[in-house]
Design a protein around this nucleic acid. Sequence first.
DNA 1: CAGAGACTCGAGGAG
DNA 2: CGAGTCTCTG
Length: 738
Amino acid sequence: MNLIEGLNDKQKEAVLTTEGAVLILAGAGSGKTKVLTHRIAYLVHEMKVAPYSILAITFTNKAASEMKERVEKIVGSGAKDIWVSTFHSMCVRILRKTIHRMGYSNQFSIYDAEDQKKLVGQITKDLGLDEKFYPTKKTLSIISSQKNDFISPAQYEAQMLGDFTGTNYSTIYKMYQEKLEKNNSLDFDDLIFKTIQILKECSDVREYYGERFKYILVDEYQDTNNSQFMLVELLASKHRNVCVVGDPDQSIYKWRGANIRNILDFEKKYKEAKIIKLEENYRCTKTILETANEVIKNNINRKEKNLWTQNEEGEQICIYNAYDDRDESMFIASTIVKEVESGNEDYNSFAVLYRTNAQSRVIEELFINKNIPYQLYGGVKFYARKEIKDILAYLKLLVNTRDTLSLERIINVPRRGIGETSMDRLAAYAAQENKTMYEAMLTINEVYELKSVAFKFQAFVDMLEEIKSDLRNKKITEIVEQILEKSTYMQTLKLETTEEARDRVENIYQFIAKAQEYDETREDGTLENFLEEVSLVADIDNYEEQNNTVKLMTLHSAKGLEFPQVFIAGVEEGVFPSYMTLNSVDEDEREEERRICYVGITRARKRLYITYANARKQFGRIVYNAPSRFIEEIPEKYKKDLTIKRKAENSAKIKVISKLSDGLKKHTTFSVSNYNNLVTPSKVAMSFESGDKVSHVKFGFGIIEGVRPAGADYELTINFETVGTKKLMSKFANLERV
DNA sequence: CAGAGACTCGAGGAG
DNA sequence: CGAGTCTCTG
């Protein structure tokens, strides 16, 4: 295969300039992915570079696996040894081998935002600081910025010297870090931070990776932060063959610490750098591209560039001014239906993009109403759901018994009668013995003052130890099943008759299906690896072309994707640009909004719709927003207004069913599990009466004390020998007469 | 210690 | 409006 055939001159240059530092400024739709994959293939194929000495860093796992796939197609199975991964998974890979040098064990846990919140909340409380003045969210964002700038707690403390509030924040930071270390856990930012630390402090590790990675590529470079910059610099210090690709106009993650200067100043840091500009767009129509150019022009703080296309003129941008958010959604839904019914497009061709996740709700409602198949990305992420996080906490604890946060999460889930008081006592005992909580539980019976609850701790830890036995030889599915069964988690959940509980059960089955898939595809997969994969997936990673669905996602998630027809919804002052930026002193925050808009516009290949509503429900109240400045920034000649026509058509039928149907919850990106039920559902609601002696799978032997009709079922009051009186629904209790 | 009910505050974007 | 937290009672 000729690797440069069909490429334009600039693209060729980008593929062929393999040595030294290279900065590729790649405008939207300029064939960046093609260039990257061909470049890698060229290295392997033509330059005979060993695949394992190539490192390619992408923004999402999805982009990584896509790139890997494409390279594999060209160079064959050798591609397996190329490291194509996100910053985070690359770091985990390094840390799993090396972090024992820093007082952690290689089985460390990875904490997500919720875990972080819990820790910081605890610490703030322990320090006696008022959460009103030290809100967890703010603290976390401070800690995150420090880590993104590679500033340690000690350095931050020094910086805050003499600043009362700042010193308090630095104290929290310090304690937070101590706690993480004690729990043998890392947060997301630590993954980068610790890797830098190890590379700096352990010269042999630095030597090893520095020597190994002869060619480094970094995609989406405009969204890297300072720590990531340092990391790349360290890894590339030896060979200095570093190729970064990005587009300053698409830098939309400043809030996450991204430093746009990394790309703007690349040539200053790497003086020898060769700069290649890819300015021909192959994706959009002239009109769409011009629209994007006109909008982004309004950013003062920006390097001019000239993105152009040979594509056809195309249609004007469709603007729709809705009465309210509901009307807006209706316009989107009926436009899609019309297009699909006319045979012009199928559902796959459409994406609806919005600024905030909350906006998806109304759109979904209308889609369900009109039977439009869709996939939603973002929102409450699958692995962030309570029930999934519970199971994950069990799993984490099995791997890393120092993970006290996970322990605390599940020690009383399902209820084991272990409350705060007991936990405090256990903690005190553990501290006194200088043991972890887990270790303390193992010897709990020796402690006189804990006698009353000791057996509960004992039962819990025994259960975990039992699951842990022969852990290496168990399939993940097996481990998960044992947890669900032995902890009675599944059973307890099934005893609840709420719709919510049913959803949870369903989610757990989906989780098991995921575990099964993992078992089947990863022969040598370990529990650690499974947990790691789960911790590091972004929602967008699960984006798969499912048969014919409209895609709903935030503008941020849409980065890197393209669709024939795109709707951008809620283009109003206060929504997009976000109200958070309207009064900000920082002009760049508003410019970042405009860059997000630029990203959104350039996702569209053929047709772009921009919609805005006069009124919209926000925070449960109705707000009235002006049309967004971004709409005004589009020259008249590129716009056509669909509003009047629609209004006439629809004025009669603006009543919509507001009730959310079940379908709303079925939006997850996972295929429905075909897994057989773990615990067989209850059979018959046989009749019991007071005085009957029964036996229950979990609670054991008991006597029925009362029977009360409840709906189609009966509520039984049962006095159990071991756990005392419980109220259970006859239908679900699975009782056996004794 | 568990569960119900009151209450409060928040939703900007994500690996 | 709704999720998460606090407080009260059994």
